[in-house]
């Protein structure tokens, strides 16, 4: 997802007998759905796992602006341009809500940014794919934001208060994102044969990378088991992926587009679609830095960080000067 393969303790979930008194009281609160707040006692590993997860989520929102930003100057109409601008601005906001939540755990914003730029922290694999034509912007809103919503809706109930509140704000804004994407897809799919071809091409390229967003199957992962016990992960990756496929197939049918999976079939018995898993080797390659756009994305973020330094420092110097002047008066 936006936070893929986040590691927790790696040790598996402790039994009640193995827990300290503090840990037991902490787990009881979580089981009773009492939110954990910044100054409450928490296991160090809970804190660290959350910093990794929320940080990675925040980075994804920020890096995720780049593939869409690519089309702001190329949008086909002024109205589409304004809508896309508003959507991309929302993603900046999402990044900020999430950085704030991470900061309540005692890390600084600059450290998080530097960990992203040094490659120590990751962002979602999906943003390493290029947006080649306008239909891609439709596909991103429909599929990428659609997949993000699948993951974010249950996270509104996560155990950490600031994270949960950030997710609630984000979810309120996401359905606009998905709908504007689907609206672009409808226009293209119902347009000229050439437009319809572009829409199909965008779906062909974004389908499997969207399925990868949920991460590889984690039904046997100790990290996921711990995260689920702590309620910082609510569903398994497979559950969310299945839900996404079930929801998306009829939407593609409505558009008259075909999902690029010859084995996709409705399974009467399970009440779900059977589908082909994405190529997980490709996923691991992209995570490692070898996707089509990894280098470009990191270069863009690094350039923004470095070119913005004089602005950050200049505004701070100005603020200090102004404060000193007011104090002297």
């Amino acid at each position: 997802m936006y936070a893929q393969m986040v590691k927790s303790t790696g040790k598996g979930v402790k039994t009640r007998e193995e827990m300290s008194e503090d840990e037991r009281a902490f787990q009881d609160k979580i089981d009773a759905d009492t939110k954990i707040e910044p100054r409450d006692w928490m296991p160090e590993e809970y804190r660290k796992t959350l910093v990794r997860q929320i940080g990675q989520h925040a980075h994804s929102e920020i890096v995720g602006q780049l593939p869409e930003g690519n089309w702001i100057t190329r949008a086909p109409t002024l109205e589409r341009k304004m809508i896309l601008l508003a959507k991309v601005q929302d993603e900046a906001g999402h990044g900020l809500y999430l950085y704030c939540a991470a900061e309540t755990l005692g890390v600084s914003r600059d450290d998080l940014t530097e960990d992203l730029l040094s490659g120590k922290m990751k962002y979602s694999s999906i943003f390493n794919y290029p947006t080649l034509n306008w239909a891609d912007i439709g596909a991103v809103g429909w599929l990428v934001d659609g997949a993000a919503i699948m993951n974010q809706v249950p996270l509104q109930r996560t155990s950490y208060g600031p994270y949960s509140r950030a997710m609630i704000r984000i979810c309120k804004e996401e359905s606009f994102h998905q709908r504007q994407g689907y609206d672009i897809m409808m226009k293209m799919a119902q347009g000229s044969p050439e437009q319809k071809r572009m829409a199909q091409d965008a779906l062909d390229r974004f389908w499997y990378p969207s399925l990868m967003m949920f991460g590889p199957s984690d039904k046997d992962s100790v990290h996921s088991a711990q995260s689920m016990a702590w309620k910082i992960k609510i569903n398994t990756n497979d559950e969310l992926r299945q839900k996404f496929v079930d929801q998306t197939v009829p939407q593609a049918e409505y558009l008259g587009l075909s999902i690029p999976d010859p084995d996709l079939t409705w399974n009467e018995e399970t009440g779900h679609y059977d589908f082909t898993e994405p190529n997980w080797q490709e996923f691991f390659d992209v995570i490692k830095g070898n996707g089509p756009c990894n280098t470009e994305r990191m270069n863009d973020r690094t350039r923004a960080w470095e070119d913005g330094r004089w602005v950050r420092e200049g505004l701070m110097a100005h603020a200090r000067k102004k404060a000193a002047r007011t104090a002297a008066e």
Partner: peptide, 23 residues
């Protein structure tokens, strides 16, 4: 009474931060 709404688990070891203050 504590002088902060947040824990500050890492700041002591770190060099002074240059980032804009938190509001």
């Amino acid at each position: 009474v504590s002088p902060s709404a947040y824990p500050d688990t890492e700041s002591e070891k770190k060099p002074e931060r240059k980032e804009w203050p938190l509001w």
